[in-house]
Design a protein around this nucleic acid. Structure first.
Lengths: 115, 115
DNA sequence: ATGCTACATTGACATTCGTCAATATAGCCA
DNA sequence: TGGCTATATTGACGAATGTCAATGTAGCAT
């Protein structure tokens, strides 16, 4: 049984029964898993995940993130986009603010795939 | 309590009690965690890990890996080096052959850090 | 309407990364 | 010794990545 992919070829499937790395990965599966890992494999994005996870209500707006990251606002927006496109963050707009929250299931799914 | 680092500033510590991402990461910790994740965030290297893990005796020599990866021998050696330097692979030389095996504890440690 | 605030997008740039051909190293065997 | 095999290293190149300044968009308040 291979690692499951959704219609776009992205890694998905339930966290209950991952194949992990115990079976040889074909190139395609390896590429979509790598795309997901690349989204996390950056210091700024790891900081973002940890900051959002540990903030009140488990959500943050961009303006609260640029200072602790010591990066420009466009750069922070860029990283948030990468994480969102990878399915690791969700965005909700309230007025002028964008609120980001961590998709925990997706993160644990990723964690499980490394077994 | 922060994520533990060894003398070189690399992510280490027991798999028993990781902080994961539940606490804000400082830049230095995030950088060393990202270094470890970058080593895994590549399709060829994911294939390598899965191939070595699922091979007889859970070890492989380079010559058995270039064909399934469809990459040149120098490129495969390069990826093996990246994984080895990240502590995810161990190398043993027997005669002319280099045998690589997966450091499973290190991999599970990484998996645990994503909680 | 005007201005302000929060955020996204674009364009440019330096750096890093993945890859291969060529070459080097080193063990084994006749 | 010489030649063969397995692996590592070097150098080069295009592609991808992280960053910022400048600009665009959109909601809110006066």
């Amino acid at each position: 049984m291979a690692t499951r992919l959704d219609a776009r070829g992205e890694v998905t499937g339930p966290a209950c029964c991952p194949t992990g790395l115990t079976t040889p990965l074909d190139r395609g599966t390896a590429e979509s898993l790598a795309r997901l890992l690349k989204a996390v494999a950056d210091p700024a994005r790891l900081q973002l995940l940890s900051l959002i996870k540990s903030s009140p209500n488990a959500e943050s707006c961009v303006c609260d993130l640029t200072v602790p990251l010591a990066l420009s606002q466009p750069t922070v927006s860029h990283h948030l986009r990468v994480l969102t496109e990878a399915g690791l963050l969700s965005r909700t707009n309230r007025g002028t603010w964008s609120w980001y929250s961590v998709n925990d299931e997706r993160l644990q799914e990723l964690s499980a795939l490394l077994r």
